[in-house]
Simulated scan of single mutants.
Amino acid sequence: MKKTLLAAACLILTLVKGYGQQYMTRNGFVGFYSKTPAEDIKAETRQGFAIIDEGKKNLAFAVLIKGFTFPKELMQEHFNENYMESDKYPKATFNGSFAGDLAPGRDGVYHVTVKGNLTMHGVTKPVEMPATIERKGNQLIGHAVFHISPEEFNVSIPSLVREKIEKSLEVHVDIQCDQK
């Protein structure tokens, strides 16, 4: 598992080469949620690797699928084995850019638009979402909320369960990147 994370980190670093100031974290938060009549779905991880190149306005993110934890162990087992096939597709990645100006060296919250490619379960899709980046000293703190549908990433939901859950999952991303 450490080798996979190291490989993801190397990939991200090569994708975000640049001359601007870089910020990085290895403990970014990703959580996804879905309210259902039968049972709510909630999973979270604090093992996200993120890097932001402020000058080029590039960013990249990787998270190991097996890093997500659920309130119920059986739910986590089904997620990894039946839905996400995490042995076959061990990570999800995002590679993209942001539009919006961050005042150099000035603390504050900046509203940006993040646009790029999300790869999950072997499928790559373009995504775009509003986000905030807060400059706080030598850190950039990013926050985004967006929705994805398992079907658009070829994640099969059995018919027995399909009608009992929402069609899309709400995804929260929070990163606190230190200047490198």
Results as ranks from 00 to 15, higher is better:
residue 3 K to T: 02
residue 5 L to W: 08
residue 6 L to A: 13
residue 7 A to Y: 05
residue 8 A to L: 15
residue 9 A to R: 12
residue 15 L to H: 10
residue 16 V to E: 00
residue 16 V to H: 01
residue 18 G to L: 05
residue 20 G to R: 06
residue 20 G to T: 03
residue 23 Y to W: 08
residue 24 M to L: 12
residue 24 M to G: 10
residue 24 M to N: 10
residue 26 R to M: 14
residue 27 N to E: 13
residue 28 G to N: 09
residue 31 G to F: 06
residue 35 K to Y: 07
residue 36 T to N: 15
residue 38 A to T: 13
residue 38 A to R: 10
residue 40 D to M: 05
residue 41 I to M: 10
residue 42 K to L: 15
residue 44 E to W: 04
residue 45 T to F: 04
residue 46 R to W: 12
residue 46 R to N: 14
residue 47 Q to N: 12
residue 47 Q to W: 03
residue 47 Q to D: 13
residue 47 Q to S: 11
residue 48 G to H: 03
residue 49 F to G: 08
residue 51 I to Q: 00
residue 52 I to P: 00
residue 52 I to V: 11
residue 53 D to G: 06
residue 54 E to G: 11
residue 58 N to F: 09
residue 59 L to I: 05
residue 60 A to I: 02
residue 60 A to F: 00
residue 62 A to S: 15
residue 63 V to L: 06
residue 68 F to E: 09
residue 68 F to L: 10
residue 72 K to Q: 12
residue 72 K to L: 12
residue 75 M to Y: 05
residue 76 Q to N: 09
residue 77 E to D: 13
residue 78 H to P: 01
residue 80 N to T: 10
residue 80 N to A: 04
residue 81 E to N: 10
residue 82 N to G: 06
residue 82 N to Y: 06
residue 83 Y to V: 08
residue 84 M to R: 08
residue 84 M to Q: 11
residue 85 E to L: 13
residue 85 E to T: 01
residue 89 Y to A: 01
residue 92 A to H: 04
residue 93 T to C: 08
residue 97 S to F: 07
residue 98 F to C: 12
residue 101 D to Y: 08
residue 102 L to V: 11
residue 105 G to T: 09
residue 113 T to R: 02
residue 113 T to P: 01
residue 115 K to T: 15
residue 118 L to E: 09
residue 119 T to S: 15
residue 119 T to C: 09
residue 121 H to C: 09
residue 121 H to S: 10
residue 122 G to D: 03
residue 123 V to A: 07
residue 124 T to L: 10
residue 124 T to G: 08
residue 128 E to N: 06
residue 128 E to D: 00
residue 130 P to G: 04
residue 131 A to I: 02
residue 132 T to N: 03
residue 133 I to E: 01
residue 134 E to A: 13
residue 136 K to N: 10
residue 137 G to E: 10
residue 139 Q to K: 14
residue 140 L to S: 02
residue 141 I to G: 01
residue 142 G to H: 04
residue 142 G to M: 12
residue 144 A to Y: 03
residue 147 H to W: 07
residue 148 I to Y: 00
residue 150 P to Y: 04
residue 150 P to R: 03
residue 151 E to T: 14
residue 151 E to M: 12
residue 154 N to K: 15
residue 154 N to S: 15
residue 154 N to R: 11
residue 156 S to A: 12
residue 156 S to D: 09
residue 157 I to L: 05
residue 160 L to G: 09
residue 162 R to V: 07
residue 164 K to Y: 15
residue 164 K to H: 15
residue 165 I to C: 06
residue 168 S to G: 00
residue 168 S to M: 04
residue 168 S to L: 02
residue 168 S to A: 08
residue 169 L to D: 06
residue 172 H to L: 11
residue 173 V to W: 00
residue 175 I to H: 06
residue 177 C to M: 14
residue 178 D to W: 10
residue 178 D to C: 08
residue 179 Q to H: 11
residue 180 K to G: 05
